[in-house]
Amino acid sequence: MLDNQELRLRPPRHRVESRAIGWWTLQSSLFALPLPLVFGVLWLTIAPARFVFGPLFLVALVPGLLYMGVMPMWRYRVHRWEATDEAVYAASGWLWQRWRVVPLSRVQTVDMLRGPLQQLFKLSGITVTSASSAGAVKIKGLDHRTATELVEHLTRSTQAVPGDAT
């Protein structure tokens, strides 16, 4: 049995592209920057209210910048993926990390998706859906070529096995 052994998950084999760091930074800036920007403009234009907008600007800006500085690098260290002949294995997240394994025999669909920002960085994302409503396995930040090959590999392997345990 597995008793007197210490088990742990090994990280999946492949890292995502390092360009993904840029993509995540840009993406987070879209969330983090508009609010401090608005406060900044208000601070510049409404002189009598500066004592309000000054602190607000800082309060909105600092966490945003921290998020932009920390999250992408952290994500890059965590996000990894691997596809064997039996299963897809992917790790994601940063503060909350998630490892997912889906056997190829249970895969229903494989989608490739490239949002406008991802295209800017020449990246692709793959979504592997199974019959579970718990959410699909998403691998984001792949090179376009790697993604295409992975999709081919997955569709080839999943066609072989019928049934989806519904």
Partner: peptide, 10 residues
Amino acid sequence: IIGWSITRSA
């Protein structure tokens, strides 16, 4: 069971 999802917070 059609897959595992393991989550760990900090």
